[in-house]
Design a binder for these strands. Structure first.
Length: 273
DNA sequence: AGAACCGCCTGCTTGC
DNA sequence: TGCAAGCAGGCGGTTC
């Protein structure tokens, strides 16, 4: 296990939010690191996070992702749920040093894991193991019939629907923009205006975009880092997000930015109809 | 039910 | 240079 020095990788002030893929990356790394390990102590440094004394002493059965939630299942029939929201990060610590913005520290018998979160949006909860998994996660299980029944006919813009957690688990702004670009669909179109074929394209492009990003350990727009401080490698693959005014890599049009529900949407008017 | 909006947060960027 | 306002956004909540 190599750890990245120097600590300049830890720069919470400039962090990008972890999206679905970043969470997936963290869960895989955590599973490899702490499966079968005992949680010796749990220290909370943030008044917004409940003290969770019942969690200590348990042995990790596995670490998995549910939407954007990191789920640690313990042998005590409890599960620790960590949602990183906007600026949360998890780091394995090689030393015992206290980092800035630490909200929670998990001490296992082989490593310490810190939750770092400058903006304090992250949430931590302890629940009984066995909560049913989400049925709207494009990578782990997507109920297409349920989606068409409940959401495909909505009048909301398709971009808004992609980011609606009731319709799709864990698709954030970056990937919502990228998926629609790959699918060639204009973000402002009402969801109800998409044909079944266009929805099919959205689903297949979404899986492709997400899987590509997973293989590259997430998207580092500025400085997202994985559990061990290594950067992701997907930033060069973004076609539209954050590229307002620049040339589209596909059609040589100019990437545009509009506001939808208060969020920036990037798209290429040339590629997306 | 769904659409639109708000609040939670803090630090960086922008404008005067 | 300094300060205030604007901005970033996942997601649960509220209102209409």
């Amino acid at each position: 296990m190599t750890l990245v020095n120097p600590p300049s990788w830890l720069n919470p002030e400039r962090s990008e939010m972890p999206e679905l893929l970043e969470v997936e990356t963290l869960c895989r790394q955590l599973d490899g690191l702490i499966r079968g390990r005992r949680l010796l102590s749990l220290t909370v440094y943030d008044s917004k996070i409940d003290a969770l004394p019942e969690a200590t002493g348990g042995i990790v059965r596995n670490v998995r992702r549910d939407g954007k939630t990191v789920v640690m299942d313990f042998d005590s029939q409890r599960s620790l749920l960590i949602h990183l929201r906007m600026t949360g990060r998890l780091f394995a610590k090689p030393d015992g040093a206290r980092r800035p913005h630490v909200r929670l520290s998990l001490r296992f018998d082989n490593t310490d894991i810190d939750l770092i979160d400058p903006r304090r949006f992250a949430t931590v909860n302890l629940v009984q193991t066995g909560r049913p998994a989400l049925k709207n996660d494009l990578l782990t299980g997507f109920d297409r019939r349920l989606f068409f029944k409940r959401h495909a006919g909505r009048r909301a813009p398709v971009k808004i629907l992609l980011m609606d957690p009731k319709a799709f688990a864990g698709i954030g702004n970056i990937y919502a923009c990228e998926i629609l670009h790959r699918a060639g669909i204009e973000p402002a179109r009402p969801a109800a205006s998409l044909s079944p074929g266009e929805w099919g394209k959205v689903f297949s492009r979404a899986r492709a975009v997400l899987k590509t990003a997973i293989n590259k350990r997430g998207t580092s727009i500025s400085d997202w880092r994985d559990l061990f401080g290594a950067p992701g490698e997907n930033q060069t693959g973004l076609a539209v997000y954050g590229r307002e005014g620049k040339r589209c890599r596909f059609c040589k049009g100019v990437v545009a930015r509009v506001k939808q529900a208060g969020r920036s949407t990037y798209y290429c008017p040339g590629c997306q109809k």
